[in-house]
Amino acid sequence: MFTKLNQFFSQLAADSQPKQNEVSLEIACAVLLCEVMRADSAFTESEQNKVAQLLIKQFSLTEHEVDEILQQAVKLSENASDFYQFTSQVNQHYTLEQRIEIVSLLWQVAYADGELASIEEHIIRKIADLLHLRHSEYIATKISAQSHYERK
């Protein structure tokens, strides 16, 4: 009986410790960007450069920091079963306007290779839903990205 009580209290203490598998906000955003980049199974240099550029700008990071974050993000992206652990980090720390900006960044990655694959659009829609964006906000970010791409 004492063994079970000790196990119970040990489990409570372990549960109250910060989780080691919690990812930083930068890595969570990087994973979401990588998910869009990886969606069509064509990792173009233009998409990879766009993701790095967006991370540098969004988080004021150095190229070295971005390289480290992207290495972790790609691994997490390859092994992730869903987007929830990443979008929950974003939801917890970002305002609605900042979440809309993240979706805008996702569109920029999708258009970086010059074409929008339907799977990229599908993934962005799923992420936008998990970020609690209204459909009108999702569409506005898409239209903005399209018009930016068409002007180039």
Results as ranks from 00 to 15, higher is better:
102 I>V: 15
43 F>V: 14
10 S>Y: 06
36 V>S: 04
42 A>V: 14
57 K>Y: 08
45 E>L: 13
36 V>A: 04
146 Q>I: 10
88 S>H: 08
19 K>W: 05
127 I>P: 01
72 Q>S: 13
59 F>R: 06
66 V>G: 07
137 E>L: 07
11 Q>S: 14
87 T>E: 08
35 E>P: 02
30 A>F: 05
112 A>W: 03
97 E>H: 11
143 I>C: 01
8 F>N: 09
26 E>F: 01
131 L>Y: 00
19 K>C: 10
107 W>H: 06
101 E>N: 14
40 D>G: 03
14 A>E: 15
69 I>L: 09
130 L>F: 07
12 L>F: 10
1 M>K: 12
112 A>L: 05
84 Y>K: 15
117 A>E: 13
98 Q>C: 07
152 K>D: 09
70 L>R: 10
113 D>C: 10
148 H>Y: 09
134 R>N: 11
52 A>W: 00
152 K>M: 12
80 A>E: 06
59 F>Q: 05
97 E>N: 14
110 A>W: 01
115 E>V: 12
41 S>Q: 13
89 Q>A: 12
6 N>F: 15
13 A>W: 03
101 E>R: 12
40 D>S: 05
89 Q>D: 00
1 M>D: 11
138 Y>M: 08
117 A>Y: 09
16 S>E: 13
3 T>I: 11
97 E>Y: 08
69 I>Q: 03
35 E>G: 10
35 E>L: 10
12 L>N: 09
127 I>N: 02
77 S>A: 14
111 Y>H: 09
146 Q>D: 05
72 Q>Y: 03
85 Q>D: 12
94 Y>T: 00
72 Q>W: 00
8 F>H: 14
94 Y>C: 12
108 Q>V: 05
69 I>P: 07
55 L>V: 02
64 H>N: 13
28 A>T: 04
76 L>E: 08
2 F>V: 12
17 Q>I: 11
34 C>A: 13
72 Q>C: 07
38 R>P: 00
77 S>K: 08
36 V>P: 04
66 V>Q: 06
18 P>A: 12
39 A>T: 03
52 A>Y: 01
19 K>D: 15
109 V>A: 09
29 C>R: 06
100 I>W: 04
17 Q>R: 14
148 H>A: 13
10 S>F: 05
34 C>D: 00
